[in-house]
Computed example of a mutant assay.
Amino acid sequence: MNEKIIKPIPGFAMLGFAVLCLIGSAFSFYSAYVFIGVVLIIVALISFMGIIIINPNESRVLTFFGIYSGTVKANGLFFVNPLYKKQSISLRARNLNGQSLKVNDKMGNPIEIAAVIVWQVEDTAKAAFAVDNYTLYVNIQSEAAVRHLAGSCPYDNLEDENATITLRDGADKVNDMLEHELNERLRPAGITVLEARISHLAYAPEIAGAMLQRQQATAVVAARKQIVEGAVGMVEMALARLSEREIVHLDEERKAAMVSNLLVVLCAEKAVSPIVNTGTLYN
Rank of each mutant, 00 (worst) to 15 (best):
E195L: 05
E195K: 14
A196H: 05
A196Y: 03
A196F: 01
A196Q: 05
R197M: 01
R197Y: 01
R197N: 14
R197I: 00
I198T: 06
S199W: 00
S199L: 01
S199I: 01
S199T: 05
H200Q: 10
H200Y: 06
L201P: 05
A202L: 02
A202Q: 08
Y203K: 02
Y203P: 00
Y203A: 01
A204C: 00
E206Q: 09
I207A: 04
I207G: 02
A208C: 07
A208P: 10
A208Q: 11
A208S: 11
G209T: 10
G209K: 12
A210R: 05
A210W: 04
M211W: 00
L212I: 07
L212D: 09
L212T: 10
Q213Y: 03
R214K: 08
R214G: 05
Q215D: 15
Q215C: 04
Q216N: 12
Q216V: 09
A217P: 03
A217K: 12
T218F: 09
T218V: 11
T218K: 10
V220A: 11
V221T: 09
V221S: 09
V221Y: 14
V221C: 03
V221G: 03
A222N: 11
A223F: 03
A223H: 12
R224F: 01
R224H: 06
K225H: 13
Q226H: 07
Q226G: 06
Q226N: 11
I227F: 05
I227Q: 14
I227D: 14
I227N: 12
G230H: 02
G230W: 01
A231Y: 02
M234N: 03
M234K: 10
M234C: 02
M234E: 06
V235M: 04
E236N: 09
E236F: 00
M237H: 11
M237K: 11
A238E: 14
A238N: 13
L239Q: 04
L239S: 00
A240Y: 04
A240P: 04
R241K: 13
R241C: 01
S243M: 03
E244N: 09
R245P: 00
R245T: 14
R245G: 04
E246M: 06
E246L: 04
E246T: 05
I247Y: 14
V248M: 12
V248L: 13
H249P: 00
L250E: 00
L250A: 02
D251T: 06
D251M: 07
D251P: 07
D251Y: 07
D251G: 12
E252L: 08
E253Y: 09
R254W: 00
R254I: 04
K255C: 06
K255H: 09
K255T: 12
K255P: 04
K255L: 04
K255W: 02
A256W: 01
A256I: 08
A257S: 13
M258Q: 08
M258W: 07
V259T: 15
N261G: 08
N261S: 10
L262T: 06
L262W: 13
L262H: 06
L262S: 10
L262Y: 14
V264S: 08
V264G: 10
V264L: 12
V264Q: 13
V265K: 07
L266D: 08
C267D: 10
C267K: 07
C267F: 03
E269C: 03
E269F: 05
E269L: 09
K270R: 12
K270L: 07
